[in-house]
């Protein structure tokens, strides 16, 4: 059942955001993150928040899925807030024991919390509306200029998509080998760290062997289907900018200009 895990966290539904070219979403996400660090006023944050709210609304993804991404960083968020709250010098507001909360501290802490929250939710909008495949395609095309400085862009993208295809298979395989070894009395749970690490050998050796065998098979299958690198390949689903993509870039530009003016 491990095969049912969808990587990334793509949320399947119909929306204008889903249909956008992945390059637009990538660029927009990067610009949005930059804008968060550019603005420095309440109005700026309001603009950023508004922009984000509109995007979420357009994406048709339930809000609770957006917040899911937050769980992973809640500790980081709390730490950042605490540090800024207590360690920012300035006009004291409240003082408890040796810790002093300053007026500046509150300001910075709130700002950081908002920034981080927007940042995480902002990138979630991208990952929730774009399939991993599509994202790899987008990256490949965006990074194409890097080929001039000999970055193997196509190969990196191919590796990423093969990894995405095989991770669920290898997860299932791990589960199977683990069960087989448990049936032979292996114990993966109890014992010291050292003992636990040693218990992994019967798991990792077969897993690596299997991964290599699969890699070998796949390489042969790709060769048999005339794969010879990225040159001269055509695309079944080429990325071509549509009207909506150009429109999206304009909206993005307007937002950035707005941020400059307000922030």
């Amino acid at each position: 059942m491990l095969r049912d895990i969808t990587l990334g966290q793509y949320y399947q539904t119909e929306s204008v955001i889903h249909r956008l070219d992945p390059r637009v979403k990538l660029v927009a996400t990067i610009c949005y993150i930059l804008s968060l660090f550019l603005v420095d006023s309440v109005w700026g944050y309001l603009a950023a928040g508004l922009f984000l709210a509109v995007m979420i609304r357009l994406s048709h993804v339930p809000f609770k899925f957006m917040v899911k991404g937050m769980k992973a960083i809640i500790l980081l968020l709390a730490l950042t807030v605490a540090f800024n709250l207590f360690l920012t010098p300035g006009e004291p507001l409240v003082s408890v024991w040796k810790l002093t909360i300053t007026k500046e501290g509150v300001r910075v802490a709130v700002m950081m919390a908002v920034r981080l929250t927007f940042l995480i939710i902002g990138s979630s909008v991208m990952t929730l509306t774009t399939t991993p495949n599509n994202l790899t395609d987008g990256m490949e095309k965006l990074m194409k200029p890097l080929r001039k400085i000999r970055v193997p862009v196509h190969e990196i993208a191919m590796m990423m998509s093969i990894a995405l295809r095989f991770i669920p298979i290898l997860l299932e395989e791990t589960d199977k080998i683990m069960k087989a070894q448990i049936a032979r009395g292996a114990d993966f749970e109890s014992g010291s760290i050292l003992k636990k690490a040693r218990a992994l050998v019967p798991l990792l050796v077969p897993l690596f062997i299997s991964a290599f065998r699969r890699a070998n098979d796949l390489a042969m299958a790709m060769e048999a289907r005339c794969y010879r690198g990225g040159d001269n390949r055509t695309k079944m689903k080429p990325l071509i900018y549509q009207r909506r993509d150009r429109l999206a870039y304009i909206v993005l530009a307007l937002y950035l200009v707005g941020c400059f003016v307000i922030g």
Binding site: A180, A183, G185, P202
Partner: peptide
């Protein structure tokens, strides 16, 4: 699990030791 022995499908894919003998020892050793 030692009383009800289960041999999985393609069990050869779980072998990991350096020699045949050591691999068979894994179960009883556990």
């Amino acid at each position: 699990r030692s009383k009800v022995g289960l041999v999985f499908q393609y069990p050869e894919h779980q072998l990991f030791e350096v020699t045949v003998f050591e691999d068979v020892c894994f179960g009883p050793k556990n």
